[in-house]
Write a protein that binds this DNA or RNA. Structure first.
Length: 267
DNA sequence: GTCCAGGGTAAGC
DNA sequence: GCTTACCATGGA
C-alpha cells in the first residue's frame, strides 16, 4: 500500500542507531519488527510504498513509526539562538522516534555497550537467526525472552555477545520467569521506569534511557553516550537547556546524535 | 596490525 | 558519594 508521511527521512531513521533491524535493499529497506516483516520504499517526496495491508498498517506500523506525532512543530520550538541545535534540527528533522518492542530494545542496548552500530546489528541478526521464530523464508523474528533464557551457552556465545552474554541471559531469565513484567512497566512514570530498567544486569542510566525513549516513547529521556557527551562539552558548555525543551528532549537528543555523527563523517 | 565502538561493574578511595 | 581498570568482539 502507498502512504504519505510528510518529511519522513527513511534513510536517516533506518541508520539512526535506535533500531538495528533495518536491512538496506536495492530501493529501500527491509524492516523486521513486532514479529512482522515490512519492506519500505520511497517512491516520491513523502510518499512511501509499504508491503503491508491496511489492517497491519493500522494495527502496527502507524504506531511503530509514531505517525500520531507532529514532528514539524519542532521547527517552531527551536529558536535561532541555539546554533548547534538549529543545525542538528535542519539536518535530522526527518528522523522519527520509533516505538519498538521493549524486550528487543532492552537486549539491543545491553549489547550496544562498547560496540559499533554495524556490530550491534550483526549481533541482533545472529540472535534472531539462531533463536527467533521463522516468519518468512530466511527471515526471523527477534527471539522471545523464553528462547534466550534457555538458550545453549555455546550457541549464545556464537552470536558475538562477548562479556555481555551473562547480561543478556540474566535479563531474559528475569523476564521469562515473571520476575519483571515489561508490559506492566508502561504504567510507571519516567523516574520509576528509569530506575526499574536498571534492575536488569548490564543496564545502567544510559541504556535505561535508550529503552525509555525507543520502546516506551518517553520523549524526555535523554541518553548520554560518547557522542552526546562530546556535543554537550563542546557546544553547550553553559549547560543544555533541558527545561526549555521539556516534552521533546529525546527527539532533540536523537537529532544531536545523528548530526554529530554526520559531521564526523559517520553517516 | 591498530583503534574504537549509542557503557556497566566492581573495586578503590 | 566519586574515580578507575577492566571487560570480549567485530568493523573500519
Amino acid at each position: 500500500m502507498r502512504v504519505r508521511i510528510p518529511g519522513f527521512n527513511l534513510r536517516l531513521t533506518a541508520q539512526s542507531g535506535q533500531c538495528f533491524r533495518f536491512h538496506q535493499q536495492e530501493n529501500g529497506y527491509l524492516l523486521i519488527a513486532h514479529g512482522k516483516m515490512l519492506s519500505i520504499e520511497e517512491v516520491g517526496d513523502g510518499l512511501f510504498d509499504l508491503s503491508c495491508d491496511q489492517a497491519d498498517f493500522d494495527a502496527i506500523w502507524a504506531h511503530y513509526f509514531d505517525l500520531g506525532r507532529d514532528y514539524a512543530a519542532l521547527r517552531q520550538l527551536v529558536i535561532e539562538d541555539d546554533g548547534y541545535l538549529h543545525k542538528a534540527l535542519h539536518y535530522a528533522q526527518g528522523v522519527r522516534i520509533l516505538r519498538q518492542q521493549p524486550f528487543e530494545t532492552l537486549i539491543a542496548f545491553i549489547i550496544s555497550q562498547r560496540k559499533s552500530i554495524p556490530a550491534i546489528s550483526t549481533c541482533m541478526a545472529q540472535l534472531a537467526a539462531r533463536f527467533g521464530e521463522v516468519i518468512a523464508p530466511g527471515i526471523h523474528a527477534f527471539p522471545t525472552p523464553q528462547a534466550l533464557a534457555i538458550a545453549d551457552e555455546v550457541d549464545l556465545a556464537a552470536c558475538g555477545l562477548g562479556y555481555r552474554l551473562p547480561y543478556v541471559r540474566g535479563t531474559a531469565r528475569m523476564i521469562a520467569d515473571g520476575r519483571i513484567n515489561l508490559e506492566a512497566m508502561h504504567a510507571l512514570d519516567d523516574v520509576q521506569l528509569h530506575q526499574q530498567l536498571q534492575a536488569f544486569p548490564g543496564v545502567g542510566a544510559k541504556v535505561a534511557s535508550c529503552v525509555m525513549l525507543f520502546a516506551y516513547a518517553r520523549m524526555d529521556a535523554f541518553p548520554v553516550d560518547v557522542w552526546i557527551q562530546k556535543v554537550l562539552d563542546a557546544e553547550f558548555p553553559e549547560g543544555f537547556p533541558f527545561e526549555r525543551y521539556q516534552g521533546v528532549l529525546g527527539i532533540l537528543q536523537q537529532y544531536l546524535f545523528c548530526y554529530a555523527r554526520h559531521e564526523a563523517g559517520r553517516l
